[in-house]
C-alpha cells in the first residue's frame, strides 16, 4: 500500500474508539440508572461515529473493494492497534468510569492537536470530534469525582479501578513507527509531548476526587504493536461474529 504508514496511523486512532465503543455497547441496558445508561450509550455512539469516519478514510487509502466494515471487522487480532486500556473489561461501574476518564483526558488532548494536522480529512474528523470528546471527558470526570468522593464503598471501588488501570496509561504516549513517520510529515500528533499535561490534569482531578494517584514504576504496553491482553480475542469474537460466519454479504 502506498500510504501504509498513514493507514496504520489512522488505525492507531480509530481502533481505540472502536474497541472502547464495543465495551460500552456491552453495557447498554445494564447500567445503574437509566440516565447513566443513556449517557454511556451516547458516548458509544459518538465513538462509533468517529470510527466510521476514520475507517471510511482508511478503506479508501487501502483501495480496491475494501469497506469500513472490512477494516473494522476482518483483521486478525495482531493487526488491531488500540491501546490495552480500552480493551479492559467492564469489571464494575468504577472500572467503566475510570477507564473512560483515563482515555477521555488523552483523547481530548489528541483531538486538539490532530485538528491542526496537514491531512485535511484527519483534521476535519478531529475538529468535529472535539465537541463530543469534551462532553465525554466532562461526564467521566464528573463521575470520577462523584464516586471518588461519594461513600466509603464507592471510594474503595474507585481506588481499586485507578490502581488496576493506571498501568495502562503510559502506553497512550508511546510512539509507533507509523506515528514517527506521520509526525515527520506534519500529519501525526507527537503524543509523547502530551504526557506531562495529561498526568498533571489527571492527578489534579483524582486528588479532587479524594483518590490516591498510584506510584507505579512498571507499566504495560503492547496494544499499539498488536500484542493485546487475553480479553481481546473474546471481544473480537463477538465483534467479528457475523462477518466471519457469513462472509461477503450485505447487511
Amino acid at each position: 500500500m502506498k500510504n501504509e504508514d498513514l493507514y496504520q496511523y489512522i488505525l492507531g486512532i480509530a481502533d481505540n474508539s472502536l474497541i472502547l465503543g464495543q465495551r460500552l455497547g456491552e453495557l447498554c441496558g445494564h447500567g445503574p440508572t437509566l440516565e447513566t445508561d443513556i449517557a454511556l450509550t451516547n458516548i458509544a455512539l459518538d465513538l462509533f461515529g468517529q470510527t466510521r469516519s476514520y475507517y471510511q478514510y482508511a478503506a479508501k487509502l487501502a483501495g480496491g473493494v475494501k469497506t469500513e466494515d472490512d477494516v473494522a471487522m476482518l483483521r486478525e487480532e495482531r493487526e488491531y492497534r488500540n491501546v490495552l486500556l480500552v480493551e479492559q473489561p467492564n469489571t464494575d461501574f468504577a472500572f467503566v468510569i475510570v477507564r473512560q476518564y483515563l482515555f477521555d483526558e488523552f483523547h481530548l488532548l489528541l483531538m486538539q492537536e490532530l485538528q491542526n494536522s496537514k491531512d485535511e480529512m484527519l483534521a476535519a474528523i478531529a475538529k468535529k470530534g472535539i465537541k463530543e470528546v469534551s462532553y465525554h471527558r466532562r461526564f467521566s470526570g464528573d463521575w470520577v469525582k462523584r464516586l471518588g468522593d461519594g461513600t466509603a464503598e464507592s471510594n474503595e471501588r474507585m481506588q481499586q479501578a485507578v490502581d488496576d488501570l493506571w498501568r495502562y496509561t503510559d502506553e497512550l504516549f508511546h510512539l509507533t513507527k507509523a506515528d514517527r513517520e506521520m509526525i515527520g510529515q506534519g500529519i501525526g500528533v507527537d503524543v509523547s509531548q502530551l504526557r506531562d499535561t495529561y498526568y498533571n490534569t489527571v492527578t489534579e482531578l483524582l486528588q479532587e476526587a479524594t483518590l490516591t494517584v498510584p506510584e507505579q514504576e512498571y507499566f504495560q504496553k503492547g496494544g499499539k504493536e498488536g500484542i493485546h491482553s487475553e480479553h481481546m480475542g473474546y471481544l473480537l469474537t463477538e465483534l467479528q461474529y457475523m462477518q466471519r460466519s457469513y462472509p461477503n454479504m450485505n447487511w
Partner: peptide
C-alpha cells in the same frame, strides 16, 4: 443491574 448499581446511586446521593 439494579442491585449492582446500588453503590453507584448511594454514592451519587452522598456526593
Amino acid at each position: 443491574a439494579w442491585e449492582r448499581g446500588a453503590w453507584v446511586r448511594d454514592a451519587a446521593m452522598a456526593y
